[in-house]
């Protein structure tokens, strides 16, 4: 049954994320679930395993730097704006966090295998590399049963719970994402065993989302919680809502770079903010409304053709005689 899943960030994370969970971490270089990242840190979740293909702006770096993550399965992790994942680098060196590296398409295929409910998928990449040698947890060679040739396979990745950010969701949990759909969010989310926590820029009524189901990347039955979080991907971009905050990503990166400084950042911007609205208020207080205004996107890229899904009522056939002609024997 469809139930109202709209709740606060605090409630969503405390109810649906447990210590030790495997978490699908949504987004890519943009649409990073930062509001959820901050709340997971605030609630001091521990021993999480993260799965995703690639992730930027240092969101995962903060999560690791705050001590929430013990295992990372990924192809690429960065704060591109300081050119390194500093906290993750330190966490690997100190053995706080284990890394399991694969290529982007191996990661995508692992998530698709989870989405499909099958144990593994063949991939063309990774063979011949150190990822293949050093990550037997995710990558193995098998014999193709049809041709007898050796090939690479990647293990299915299935999260316990997925955290994603989207442009729009309804209160039942239908999630819209446009502009390349979810990149890999649709697979990571659908493969999640318990379901999905979504933050969205806007909450709409279900009659809106249901009027355009092609835009839905996660249907309500997979969704555990819907959180209204404007600026929920900041400092990463959200298509149609705001651009990338390069200066803030660099600012955050300077804290990530330094193990002694990072706790000060977390105190001020995460623990010191009750929720995401408080974080954005703090941003305005520190860097001014002009800082946020600078992130306004260039709009005007709306679809130029309005589709009509339409349907046909088979009742019109009532009483219509069979079509026939001289070649068809009655």
């Amino acid at each position: 049954m469809a139930v109202d899943k709209l709740m606060s960030l605090k409630e969503a994370v405390s109810k649906y994320i447990q210590d030790g969970d495997t978490v699908y971490y949504g987004g890519f270089q943009i649409m990073v679930p930062m509001a959820l990242t901050h709340e997971i840190i605030r609630q001091k979740k521990r021993n999480l395993t993260t799965i995703e293909s690639s992730t930027d702006v240092g969101g995962l770096d903060l999560l690791v730097g705050a001590g929430c993550v013990s295992e990372i399965h990924s192809a690429w992790i960065m704060n591109w704006y300081v050119k390194a994942p500093y906290a993750i680098r330190r966490a690997f060196q100190s053995k706080q966090t284990k890394r399991f590296d694969v290529s982007n398409f191996a990661a995508t295929s692992a998530l698709i295998a989870g989405f499909l409910g099958v144990p593994f998928l063949p991939v063309r990449g990774n063979i011949g590399t150190d990822m293949m040698k050093l990550n037997p947890t995710d990558l193995k060679m098998v014999k193709d049963p049809f041709t007898g040739e050796e090939m690479t396979v990647v293990r299915a990745w299935r999260a316990d719970v997925a955290v994603i950010h989207a442009q729009v969701a309804d209160r039942l949990g239908n999630v819209w994402s446009w502009g390349t759909r979810g990149v890999t969010d649709e697979f990571g989310a659908m493969g999640a065993k318990r379901g999905v926590i979504v933050t969205a820029e806007e909450i709409v009524e279900p009659d809106i989302t249901r009027s355009d189901p092609d835009r839905t990347v996660v249907p309500y039955f997979k969704t555990l919680a819907v959180v209204h979080a404007p600026w929920g991907a900041h400092p990463s971009a959200c298509r149609g809502y705001y651009g990338l905050d390069i200066r803030y990503s660099q600012y955050q990166g300077k804290y990530e770079r330094n193990a002694e400084l990072l706790p000060k950042f977390l105190d001020e911007w995460v623990y010191g903010c009750e929720d995401h609205k408080a974080y954005i208020d703090k941003y305005i207080q520190k860097f001014g409304q002009a800082g946020l205004d600078r992130l306004k996107p260039t709009l005007g890229y709306k679809p130029k053709y309005q589709v009509d899904y339409g349907f046909h009522d088979p009742a019109v056939w009532k009483g219509v005689p069979q079509y026939t002609d001289e070649y068809i024997k009655a």
Binding site: I77, P85, Q93, S94, V102, N104, T129
Partner: peptide, 19 residues
């Protein structure tokens, strides 16, 4: 691990260069 300095990782480069 104590000797290893992580950069980003493969991203799609491996898939691109393989195929």
């Amino acid at each position: 691990p104590e000797s290893f300095t992580y950069f980003a990782g493969s991203g799609g480069a491996n898939d691109m260069a393989t195929s």
